[in-house]
Simulated scan of single mutants.
Amino acid sequence: MAKTPRYYPAEDIKPAKVVHKVKQNPPRVRKSITPGTVLILLAGRFRGKRVVCLKALESGLLLVSGPYKINGVPLRRVNQAYVIATSTKVDVTGVDVASITDEYFARSKDAPKEAEEEFFAGDAPKPAVVSDQRKADQKKVDESLLKAVGAVPMLEAYLAAQFSLSANDKPHLMKF
């Protein structure tokens, strides 16, 4: 048996904590949402717009596009909680979105921080500028997506139409 020390330390020494790294499982995407499914956006700037799902990203968000030429929705990431999946499908096998990942949408680290004085100076805020690479990627995706949309009759008009509910609509009875 070990002898106890005569004096205790003034500070309690805590044992070193063991850090357990938790590996996140990839998020599950609803069965109704597959690449090519037409989705209705429920929130955000483009709510009420119909978009085409291109793929599910590693973060669990969905990569969608309008196409931009039809309804003005660019390549975006959308949380699946804020969409309704419809039964309409588009063949997106010819659309190449392998290079677009979550890092593609990350903001650049070297963006200059605005000084507080400049903020309060009263100048109008500068509109966000879309990079040339984003424009080129949007054009490339839209080109192949428009071919797929054009192959289905009346799909272009369906995607361009705004979705809304009126007072007498019962969404729980609707089939999308």
Rank of each mutant, 00 (worst) to 15 (best):
V95W: 08
R77I: 00
L63A: 01
D102G: 04
D123L: 10
A85H: 10
P67Q: 13
A111I: 11
F119G: 09
L75G: 03
A111F: 06
L57H: 07
L61P: 01
V90G: 03
P112R: 15
Y68I: 04
I100P: 07
A81E: 05
V90S: 10
S108D: 08
V64M: 01
K69E: 07
F119V: 13
A98L: 00
E118R: 15
E118N: 06
N71E: 06
F120I: 02
G60K: 11
A115W: 01
I70W: 14
G94N: 14
P74D: 04
I100E: 10
F119T: 12
D123Y: 14
R77H: 00
K109L: 04
N79Q: 03
S87C: 01
S99G: 09
I84E: 07
E103H: 14
A85P: 05
V95I: 10
G94M: 12
K109D: 04
K69S: 11
E117C: 02
G60E: 05
T101G: 05
A111S: 10
K109W: 05
E117Q: 13
D110Y: 10
F119K: 15
L63K: 00
P112T: 08
A81F: 07
R107G: 03
T93A: 14
D123F: 12
S65P: 01
K89D: 01
T88R: 12
K69V: 03
Y82D: 11
L61S: 10
P74A: 12
L61D: 13
G60R: 13
F120C: 01
R77P: 00
F120Q: 02
K69M: 04
V64I: 02
A106V: 07
V95D: 03
L62C: 05
G72F: 08
A98M: 00
V97T: 15
D102H: 09
N71L: 10
A124M: 11
A124I: 06
S99Q: 15
R107Y: 02
I70F: 07
V92T: 14
T88K: 13
S99C: 05
E117H: 07
S87Q: 09
V97F: 05
L75R: 00
A81Q: 09
S65G: 02
D123A: 14
P74C: 08
L57M: 11
S108P: 01
N79H: 14
E118G: 03
L62G: 06
F119P: 01
D91G: 07
I84M: 13
G94Y: 10
L57P: 01
G94K: 15
V95R: 14
V73G: 06
E118V: 05
Y82V: 06
V83R: 14
T101K: 15
A121V: 09
V73T: 04
F105K: 05
D110I: 04
P112W: 04
R77S: 00
E58K: 15
G122E: 03
V83A: 08
V90M: 03
F105T: 08
T86F: 07
E118T: 12
V83Q: 06
V95T: 11
P74F: 07
I100N: 13
A111W: 06
A115E: 03
E58F: 02
K109Y: 03
T101Q: 09
D102V: 04
Y82I: 04
G60Y: 07
G94A: 15
G122W: 03
T86H: 08
P125H: 10
P125Q: 11
P67K: 11
P74Q: 13
K89Y: 01
A81M: 06
V92A: 12
Y82G: 09
Y68K: 15
E114S: 08
